Each structure stands twice: as C-alpha cells, then as structure tokens.
Amino acid sequence: MRYLFILFVFVSFSAAAQCKDYIISAKGDTLNCTDMKGVKQGPWVVRVDNLRGERGYEEEGFFKNGVKEGTWRRFSLEGDLIAIENYRWGQKDGRNLYMTYMGEPLREENWRAIDPQNPYDTVKVYDVNDPTKVVGTKVVKIETLAVKHGTWKYYGEGGVVEKTEEWVMDKPKVKETATAATGVEDDLAPIDVSTGKTATSAKATDPKTSKKPQAVLDYEKKNSGKKKIKVRDGSTGG
C-alpha cells in the first residue's frame, strides 16, 4: 500500500509539473491544466454562474491543444445532467443530446466536424438522366467548421418526438418523387450536396424524360410510319 501511494503521488506530481496552472480535485486528480505555452490540456471542469436571468451550469470534458475533444457533459448547478456533446477539432461532431432539468429528452442533434487544416470534401457527381450512375467527383470547400449532418429530433412532453429533420452537409434533405407518374418517394435516391435534393428530381421534372401515358404510347406505336391524313372540319372556301 505504501508503494502504491508513493506511485500515485509521483504520477500526480509528474502531470502537474507539465502544467503552468492547474487545480487538484478532491480525489487528487490534476484538472484545468494550462501548459507552459498557456494552452488548455487534459481534463477540465468549467463553471458558468447564473447571469441576468440565464441559468448557470458546469461542464466537464477534455481539452486537446486548446480546443474541446471527445465527450463533454453539462450539468445544472444543482447537479442534473442537461447535455451530452461530442467534439472533434473543437467543433461539434456526431450525436448530441439535450435534456430538460427534469431529465426528459429535449433535442437530439447530429453534426459533422470539418478538419480546419483540410476544409474540403469530395462529393460524387451523378448523371442527370441516370441518377444511379456516378459520372465523376467534385472537390468542394466547406465554409463552416461544423455542419448539420444527419437526423435532428425535437421532443415534447413525455419524451414524444414532435418534429424530425434530415440534413445533408448543412442543407435540408428534400424528399422528391422518384417518377412523375407514380409519385413514390425514394428515400435512398442520391443526394446532391449543393442543393440537398435527390438527384432524381431533375429527371422526374424534365418534360423530355417524363413518362407518357400508356394510351399515348400505344397510339404512337400503331400509327408510326403512316402518312398523316387530312381531316375535313366542315369549313368552306379557299
């Protein structure tokens, strides 16, 4: 036991020695470390007091080179868990949950963080006339470092989902009809990230590619190649 205590003291001292400023928790952990360059590192606990009618909170998580990284949890000043957020490169990334002070779900968000060192993304380009065919790729620059990407849910009383949103790279995902004739929605249709719409929309609305009624197709087939017949309409003169 004596040797374990000495080892614990040595590890704590080594961690603290790498920090310019820090605090020691009640359990003896080194928290709120600012390294020799003044950059936040490691586990942190942040407290925000009540201010101008806004309720305060405490949050805990990790800093990596001055930005939030990994899972952060937010608590009310009374100790109630009110948010679970995930970060990458200091930006929200993945699934984030928010709760009421009574512990009921309030909102679920999904984000995609963008690497600030490489703020570009490669997207597929689909054939206008054949939305299942990929004709190439295009590199686009992402203007913001975190974009809405995935399903967002809004909850009402009792944890009932009242509203759902679908996002694709910060643009609403719009459900389009697969064909003008059937009106069947295709949730699996490719998404054009520049508009948020399915790639089938151009084909479905183009009059050149719209499907003709079967009666018209049968008539055209029956009379194809025949000489046009002049029909008397009852008019007189010239």
Score class of each variant (00 low, 15 high):
Ile23Tyr: 02
Val123Lys: 00
Pro207Phe: 08
Lys173Pro: 01
Thr122Gln: 09
Asp29Tyr: 11
Asn110Lys: 07
Met99Gln: 03
Tyr219Leu: 12
Leu188Gly: 14
Val48Glu: 11
Phe75Leu: 11
Glu69Met: 09
Lys68Gln: 05
Glu85Gln: 15
Thr198Leu: 08
Lys226Thr: 11
Pro116Arg: 03
Glu176Pro: 04
Gly79Trp: 05
Gly61Cys: 06
Asp206Met: 02
Asn110Asp: 00
Gly42Thr: 04
Gly159Leu: 12
Val160Gln: 11
Lys148Leu: 05
Gly103Pro: 09
Ser76Gln: 08
Gln18His: 14
Lys153Trp: 05
Asp121Gln: 07
Lys148Gln: 09
Ser76Pro: 06
Glu54His: 13
Gly237Ala: 03
Val193Leu: 08
Pro119Thr: 03
Arg47Asp: 02
Gly234Ile: 02
Ser76Ile: 03
Ile82Phe: 01
Thr179Val: 08
Asp170Val: 01
Pro207Gly: 01
Glu143Met: 12
Lys208Gly: 06
Lys171Gln: 08
Arg52Glu: 05
Lys92Phe: 09
Ile6Leu: 12
Thr200Met: 13
Val174Gln: 08
Val9Lys: 11
Lys173Tyr: 12
His149Ser: 03
Pro131Lys: 01
Gly136His: 11
Ala146Trp: 11
His149Cys: 00
Ser25Trp: 06
Leu106Cys: 06
Asp187His: 15
Gly238His: 14
Cys19Asn: 05
Gln91Met: 13
Leu217Phe: 00
Leu145Tyr: 13
Arg74Ala: 04
Val9His: 07
Ala113Ser: 12
Asp186Lys: 10
Glu220Met: 07
Ser210Gln: 15
Gly156Thr: 10
Ala15Gly: 08
Val135Phe: 11
Ile82Glu: 03
Leu4Asp: 10
Val147Thr: 09
Ala180Val: 08
Arg232Asn: 15
Gly136Asp: 03
Lys221Cys: 02
Met99Lys: 09
Thr200Leu: 12
Tyr87Met: 05
Gln214Glu: 08
Phe75Gln: 03
Ala16His: 04
Cys33Leu: 02
Asn86Leu: 00
Ala178Asp: 07
Lys226Gln: 10
Glu165Leu: 13
Thr182Pro: 03
Lys37Val: 07
